[in-house]
Nucleic acid binder design. Structure first.
Length: 269
DNA sequence: ACGCGGCCCTGGATGC
DNA sequence: TGCATCCAGGGCCGCG
């Protein structure tokens, strides 16, 4: 499910839990992408949530003794309720001293629950991530320098998350349409002018998607179980065979690295 | 370096 | 109705 805008949406929804203290918790299933730490319940017990942040597609709860991280894979969700009833695929549930109950649910189990004490940025899963799309480190020059040295399709450069993080399969297609660049264009053929446009498109598409509360294709729900409304603004993703909303040409679907890409046969070169 | 495929896992849609 | 097949917002690993 979640690319950056969806994780950001979940993060925003969790804001009401800032400064709350975690009471009891229960793990129903330890077998996710990585094993859930066996002592996670003891680690988070009676700990206060000091900050709620995001790095790439990781949601991070800073507690007073370490960091509790969630990754949502394809189908992960975080639900907040006042009256908890266990649902299928709930893997971790914890109660807060503000009366709210948070549950992590992931049917495909591609997500992860991690515990990090020490320096967050030194963790193996964090330290090699690309720059954040809304940080000053991400700009046209940065993107151009990353593109110059890579002879891979530009779509894959985004998917790698090494040049910039957070742009997954849906938003790669949307960003490339916005920038009028064909998904199979090799990164090292993208001009510096095009990189400036690409950089602007990344920020524009992601911020619109955050404003709309993310995109729901099948599974994504926010913390209240609501849909993401950026779906209605998708220009190419999932629209193969339909007409381009700008030029009326047909939208094409291709496969790159076993993932679907969508583009306008006329607008994008 | 790069392209490719497989794998983790569940469930919904589609087709025969 | 039932069964088989394909597909899905991610990401890691290994092969050639």
């Amino acid at each position: 499910m979640p690319e950056l805008p969806e994780v950001e949406t979940i993060k925003n929804g969790l804001g009401i839990c800032l400064n709350a203290t975690i009471l009891e918790s229960k793990v129903y299933n330890f077998q996710l992408r990585y094993p859930v730490p066996h002592n996670i319940s003891e680690l988070i017990h009676n700990r206060q949530i000091l900050e709620i942040t995001r790095r790439s597609k990781y949601l991070i709860l800073k507690l007073d003794n370490g960091f509790l991280l969630f990754h949502f894979g394809m189908t992960g969700r975080l639900n907040i309720t006042q009256h908890y009833r266990k649902e299928q695929h709930d893997h971790l549930v914890f109660a807060l001293d503000n009366g709210l109950i948070i549950s992590y649910n992931d049917s495909r189990k591609f997500g992860a629950i991690l515990w990090i004490d020490g320096v967050l940025e030194k963790h193996p899963l964090i330290k090699n991530l690309g720059v954040e799309p809304f940080s000053t480190a991400f700009n046209a020059e940065h993107l151009y320098n990353k593109c110059l040295i890579r002879k891979i399709p530009i779509k894959q450069l985004f998917m790698e998350g090494k040049a910039v993080v957070g742009v997954g399969n849906i938003y790669s297609s949307e960003v490339l349409f916005d920038a009028r660049i064909h998904p199979t264009r090799l990164a090292n053929t993208i001009t510096s002018k095009e990189c400036k446009q690409l950089y602007q498109s990344v920020q524009a598409i992601l911020s619109k998607a955050i404003k709309a509360g993310g995109t729901t294709i099948k599974d994504f729900r926010n913390h209240e179980g609501n849909l993401g409304y950026f779906t209605q603004q998708l220009m190419v993703y999932g629209r193969d065979g339909q007409h381009c909303l700008l030029c009326h040409s047909v939208i094409i679907k291709i496969t790159q690295n076993n993932r679907s890409s969508y583009y306008c046969s006329k607008c994008q070169v």
